[in-house]
């Protein structure tokens, strides 16, 4: 397992949890692009799995208490709310 290249959902969660605040924001914005999502699809992640990955980012963003990055494929505000309720 390469911590910088997570594969399973558990690895993704662990990867996100270890990101610094700046890195978290930067990567949360980057992954929320069409191209990255298509890459995940090419890697045969299912829709549910992709959803879980984004929830991981949302959970981490929620913990910072700061405003999440906007203008991506997915709405981090909604994801944070979902993550909060499912916790």
């Amino acid at each position: 397992m390469n911590p910088s290249e997570p594969k399973s959902l558990a690895e993704w969660r662990s990867y996100v949890a270890k990101l610094s605040e700046d890195a978290l924001f930067e990567q949360a914005k980057a992954v929320n692009s069409l191209g990255f999502i298509q890459t995940l699809q090419d890697e045969e992640y299912s829709a549910d799995e992709i959803h879980e990955i984004f929830l991981a980012f949302a959970r981490a963003l929620g913990k910072t208490g700061l405003r999440p990055p906007a203008d991506g494929v997915y709405d981090y505000f909604k994801l944070i709310e979902e993550a909060t309720h499912s916790a």
Binding site: I37, Q41, D42, E44, S46, A47, I50, H51
Partner: peptide, 12 residues
């Protein structure tokens, strides 16, 4: 539905 490739729509 789920797709692959550069013309895939985002899931969810």
């Amino acid at each position: 539905s789920a797709q692959r490739g550069e013309h895939a729509l985002p899931p969810g």
